[in-house]
Computed example of a mutant assay.
Amino acid sequence: MKKYLFLGLMSSVVFFNSCSSNDDNDGTNTPSEPKVLLSKITTVYYDNPSQPQTSTQTLEYNSQGELIKTLSASGTSTFEYSNGKPVKINYYNTNQTLEYYSAFTYNGDQLVNVKAIYTNPDYNRTITYNYNNSGQVISSTLCQSPDCSNPIVDTYAYNGNNISSETSEGGFSFNTKTVFSYDDKLNPYTNINKYLRITMRGAYVLSKNNYLTEKISFKNNGAWEQTQTRTSTIQYNSYGLPVQVISKEANGSLSAQYNYEYITQ
């Protein structure tokens, strides 16, 4: 499971550092069913096993089940909507000073791009989305400069409603490719607005289910070379949603632990 989700939905990350509109569940339930909403994420990273790092984020909703605020150690994000579509997210630091905001652009019911707007326009960034004929996000391009000279491009291949492989190339990051396998349960982000899930960037929220294995490759002389495998063990609640995910490396060492809490409406 990736250690970055953005738009304030994971406490260790901000916009563009780092789901899909494709699946049948678009964040709504029938009136007779309770809506189960993700309310807290606690993540422990074991990059340094002797000093694991813990991050916590809480999520707040309005009476319509729309995400309206996230809070973490790094600050607060607030969400604005128009006719069920997010149109703006405001990002505040720990002093409650607005650092920047993100603006959403649509073409009909399809999210086209999201722009991060700063007081200093040199910091502005844009991420643009491309879709297949089924409405699934097949790529996103992150431009971190006005001329988009060093874009980061994420590309997705699907098996049904799940991403089977995710490739990230460009920018100043390592080129990576990850191949996934999945369970048959809904993931924790299922009832979050579908457009916000698109902006979260990554297979875990773009896919319908929870992945069980990650086979990670890096480019070596232009060819992908698998160097890492992670396996996740998942505990579920009575709604079939994950409450704990423990990710381990191939040698059995801990990679990360994710704890999820929910509310119902």
Rank of each mutant, 00 (worst) to 15 (best):
P188C: 07
S255H: 11
E80N: 12
T28M: 02
T105V: 13
T30I: 13
Y46S: 09
L71F: 06
K2D: 14
P188W: 11
Y131A: 00
V36W: 09
T227F: 10
L67N: 02
N150D: 09
T119W: 00
K40L: 03
N220G: 08
L206W: 04
S149E: 09
P242M: 02
T54L: 12
G27D: 06
S77L: 05
Y262D: 07
V179K: 03
V179L: 05
V112C: 04
E249Q: 14
A103E: 12
G170I: 06
T155D: 03
G75D: 02
F180G: 00
T94Q: 12
C143Y: 04
S102Q: 03
T30P: 11
N93A: 04
T141C: 13
V179Y: 00
Q235F: 11
L186D: 15
F104T: 06
Y118A: 12
K219N: 11
N251F: 05
N120T: 14
L37R: 03
M10E: 15
I127G: 11
L59A: 07
Q226H: 05
G222N: 06
I117V: 11
E166Q: 13
S72E: 05
N124D: 14
T264M: 00
Y45H: 15
L5V: 04
S50D: 15
T231Y: 00
F174T: 15
E66K: 07
S173R: 15
T70N: 02
V44P: 08
L206A: 13
S165T: 14
L241N: 06
I198N: 08
T233A: 01
Y129Q: 02
V245F: 02
P34R: 10
N124T: 09
N113R: 12
T54D: 12
P242S: 04
L111F: 04
F104N: 01
I89W: 07
P34L: 06
Y92V: 09
V179N: 05
D184R: 03
N221R: 09
N29M: 11
N29Y: 06
T58V: 11
T70Y: 06
S39T: 12
N132A: 09
G84M: 04
T227W: 02
F6Y: 14
V13D: 15
V153D: 08
L71P: 05
Y204A: 05
T105K: 12
S181V: 00
Q144S: 15
L206Y: 08
S20R: 05
K248Y: 10
N95S: 10
D109M: 07
S232K: 00
N95I: 05
M10S: 08
T126M: 01
